[in-house]
């Protein structure tokens, strides 16, 4: 079970854990916008990305995400990074010469711009994955669906079955750990029958995976049948009005932290706009200064608020 715990809720009680799930989803979207903003020069890009990275890693430390989990969640990325690098090097683009030639390979010029581009996308992917990791490790699946249903509420006007969709989603989320446990059990059983899931040639690996996937699917289908029967036996009506046992409450610290995140995004936007308008060094420094000032101010507010709250 320990091996398969990436992306699963981890029950610590940190500041991030206690935030309202709606707030966390909004903040996630805001920060994603900030991460994917474009700038005209790579210098600005890397400075802004660096600031965002510091902030996001700070969040990871605060929410007690283990470094091991973080590395594991990136493991699927290595291949993508390599692919990106190759594509960026061999695909011609506008303004590639701007930063000069890094080196020449068999008469082919590899431009710094291609390498910078790959690094930029890699950094942004890592930041994005970190954000989703923070969200899933600090928020209970049920709270996530609550937030999801809450955001979908306006669609009710158009007779969109928000409750059914949210119920489906929360059942799916609810069963992720169960299915992970099941995976673990079946892997154990097949390992006992001589299957090696880690080593082996391609064909052997394929066979190993079939011996895991087939029983997993069969039991998942059986489980969903049983669940449907059980729900029906207890009179579940998808159209009925439901109440909630646990309702997340939007508190003052949610407002503050959301404001804080908005300020960061706003800062990034301002920097980007200014940077795109005039690429003069003076302006550059100024816009970064503004960004930094906003950043500091909100860090101070955040610190003040948390300490103040603890005393009350």
């Amino acid at each position: 079970m320990a091996r398969l715990s990436i992306g699963r809720y981890v029950a610590y009680d940190t500041f991030i854990h206690r935030l309202d799930p709606r707030n966390k989803i909004l903040a996630l979207i805001l920060l994603m916008v900030a991460i994917f903003f474009q700038f005209s020069t790579y210098e600005v890009t890397f400075i802004v990305d660096g600031i965002l990275a510091l902030f996001i890693f700070g969040l990871m430390i605060v929410s007690k995400i283990r470094f091991k989990d973080f590395i594991k969640s990136l493991s699927a990325l290595w291949f993508m990074i390599l692919l990106l690098l190759i594509i960026n090097i061999f695909i011609p683009g506008p303004n590639k010469e701007a930063y000069g030639v890094a080196w020449t390979m068999w008469n082919y010029d590899v431009y710094w711009a291609s390498i910078f581009q790959s690094i930029k996308i890699t950094i942004r992917l890592i930041l994005m994955i970190s954000l989703t990791l923070i969200l899933t490790q600090t928020t209970k699946p049920l709270d996530l669906t609550f937030a999801f249903e809450w955001f979908l509420a306006p669609l009710k006007l158009f007779k969109f079955p928000t409750h059914v969709v949210a119920m489906t989603l929360s059942i799916a989320l609810r069963f992720i750990p169960t299915i992970l446990d099941e995976t673990h059990r079946i892997m154990n059983a097949q390992t006992s029958r001589g299957v090696d899931f880690k080593h082996g040639k391609f064909v052997e690996k394929m066979h190993a995976i079939v011996s895991l996937i087939v029983p997993l699917f069969v039991s998942a289908f059986e489980r969903s049948d049983e669940l449907a029967d059980a729900m029906e036996a207890r009179g579940y009506n998808p159209k009925g009005k439901r109440t909630r046992f646990r309702k997340p409450k939007w508190s003052f610290k949610d407002s503050v932290s959301l404001l804080y995140v908005s300020a960061i995004t706003a800062g990034v936007v301002v920097v980007s706009v200014l940077n795109l308008a005039i690429t003069s060094d003076l302006f550059f420094a100024f816009s970064l200064l503004v960004e930094f000032a906003i950043f500091i101010i909100f860090v101070l507010i955040g610190i003040f608020y948390t300490t103040f709250r603890r005393k009350v």
């Binding site: 154990n188 006992s192 029983p215 069969v218």
Partner: peptide
């Protein structure tokens, strides 16, 4: 060492 697990019925595939 052959081990037959507790829920061995779902190891068939």
């Amino acid at each position: 060492v052959g081990v037959v697990f507790q829920f061995s019925e779902n190891q068939l595939f």
